[in-house]
Design a protein around this nucleic acid. Structure first.
Lengths: 336, 336
DNA sequence: CTGAAAGCGCTTACAG
DNA sequence: CTGAAAGCGCTTACAG
């Protein structure tokens, strides 16, 4: 840097006063330490004059607090996570915290790596949408008293701080709408049952079918990969329409719905029918498909906000919290 | 934390060897410092045994390097920026760096605040998509030798490290396609001319019109706000169609194109015509509109990668670099 | 080849 | 009310 930063020592010399005093004043501990008003004023004035800024590295080393938290998600470029990132950022700013982020790509290896890197870097806490293999690692850190909040998914065996959507009841409501709208054979396109989210959304689907005494038909439930699944979705949707006579499809999430919706749109055009879909997670692009749909919008901003607040409480608390917050997704019904 | 972290001193005591030695070995300076092989092995073994991890805060305080860079964009939840964030993250990881991020919302005040916060936090460098008012502040830091790379936009008066799209020639190519496709009255929906991006895209539009000797008609050029501009876009598009008889519209970016495209889709359906659009920045959702379009996809991953590389070179260099990298956007032509 | 020591810039008991 | 000093955990001249 071109010019040297001014330190406590510099002010101390300039003023002929001890560093401690200046430190107290700068940290708003003047009252507590009963520093005289005249002194406070003198110090504040000089510090301002000299453009004093405390060195956060030194503070961090001394206090063990970095005022930085870590955020680990599957992929920050995915808009679901980037929206969460934004709301976490906003809430973190309120508390004077900064956020470092990392993308795990759902890889256990990378996720573990990131957790450890961030932890070693002395972040004050972690908000994470965990990969499957993170369970033990996170549990260990948590037991060491390290503040952690799990978002979007969690490990049902562990006690943890958790912020998630109402995946079960949300899915239930979506499928219920489809049924009430006259659909009797509703296909489901989802992922392999490898996470709490996948499991609960499936259960919601099942519960709705049960309640209305519709058959749970495993032939019309299809599992597709997490990435590059366009072709899989396409062929499954086609198969469900052509060979299984479904009258509607419930999609695990919005991106899958949009891919599948394209096929349905084509079909509707050609057949003159008007098949509709359901999906968890909405998207402003869903309506571009111009087909009937019902979806459930997650309160993404809220998710970030609540998780950050929970983390802050954890950081400022002595004892371990174990809170689970469930955020209700809002239904958007464009079936008619 | 539950258990105490092990420090150099701990190993030093355990081994009866000075801290310096251990530090040298841990930092791979064994050869350089001519530490004996036996000693290296002994130290490495013990360090591993005790689970030694250097404290980054202490290293940072001592060396003045935090191995963290800052990323400031308008809004991390915007997918353009979150994609950039991801590619910067990946490249940063390669270099052993972490990324803290902040969203300015295009606000001069917030952007300045973020720059200063990050700078004071001792980041090693900054990648920023600047707000208008950042010019002087950034120039000052840059002149102090602080590594900065501007992305997406820049201040043409300043010498800086810059990574941008070919806004002018990209727009030119888009509009040229529209013209070659038979369009003679092409509206333009853009923002107020407040940034280099806005300016260059406008110039591309103008150049294409000029080359084909079409009239530059200011009545069909409309400026809309940066956010919550849906209504404005809607009414402008309607007006252009109904009262100005345009045969195509060029949109400043993809989100504007999608909003405007919805209106055009409706119009096409009702009128039996088949108006098409052009826009800078593509989107996988554009095709959902089912209207003819030509767009230019920015190499977003490349943008992040190149900017991070440039920043690293700057960090590792003594002298100021002033490089401008222009990344060519790829044309997608779905006009026919 | 190796050790003792200074110092990065803070915060915080300890003393007066 | 205020000062002198220790110490957070490193790195790096300096000495031998």
């Amino acid at each position: 840097m071109g010019f040297k930063k001014v330190s406590l020592k510099d002010i101390s010399k300039e003023l002929g006063v001890s560093q401690s005093l200046i430190s107290f004043v700068m940290n708003g501990k003047a009252k507590e330490m009963r520093v005289s008003d005249a002194m406070v004023e003198k110090i504040l004035k000089k510090a301002d004059e000299m453009g004093y800024k405390a060195n956060p590295m030194a503070q961090a080393l001394r206090t063990g607090k970095s005022n930085t938290i870590g955020l680990i998600v599957a992929d920050i470029s995915n808009s679901f996570y980037s929206k969460i990132a934004r709301s976490i950022e906003d809430e973190a700013t309120e508390h004077g915290y900064h956020v470092i982020f990392g993308s795990s790509d759902e890889s256990d290896k990378r996720s573990t790596e990131l957790i450890n890197l961030f932890y070693d870097k002395k972040i004050d806490g972690l908000i994470i949408s965990p990969a499957k293999g993170d369970r033990d690692n996170l549990l260990k850190l948590q037991n060491d008293g390290f503040p952690i909040v799990l978002i979007d998914r969690y490990f049902s065996e562990n006690e943890s701080n958790i912020v998630v959507a109402n995946n079960l009841s949300g899915s239930y409501e979506i499928v219920k709408r489809l049924i009430k709208n006259g659909n009797k054979k509703i296909g489901y396109i989802t992922h392999g049952t490898d996470s709490s989210v996948v499991m609960y959304r499936y259960q919601g689907y099942v519960q709705a079918l049960e309640e209305f005494e519709l058959e749970l038909n495993h032939q019309i439930i299809r599992e597709v990969s997490h990435i590059n699944n366009e072709k899989e979705i396409e062929s499954n949707v086609k198969d469900l329409i052509e060979n299984h006579n479904i009258d509607s499809i419930f999609f695990f999430n919005n991106t899958m719905a949009i891919e599948g919706g394209k096929i349905i749109r084509e079909y509707n055009k050609l057949s003159g029918r008007n098949l509709g879909i359901g999906c968890f997670d909405s998207s402003r692009y869903l309506e571009l498909l111009d087909i009937p749909y019902v979806s459930a919008v997650q309160q993404v901003e809220k998710l970030g906000e609540v998780s950050m607040r929970l983390l802050m409480r954890q950081i400022n608390s002595v004892s371990q919290l174990n809170e689970k917050k469930v955020l209700t997704a809002r239904l958007i019904d464009k079936l008619n």
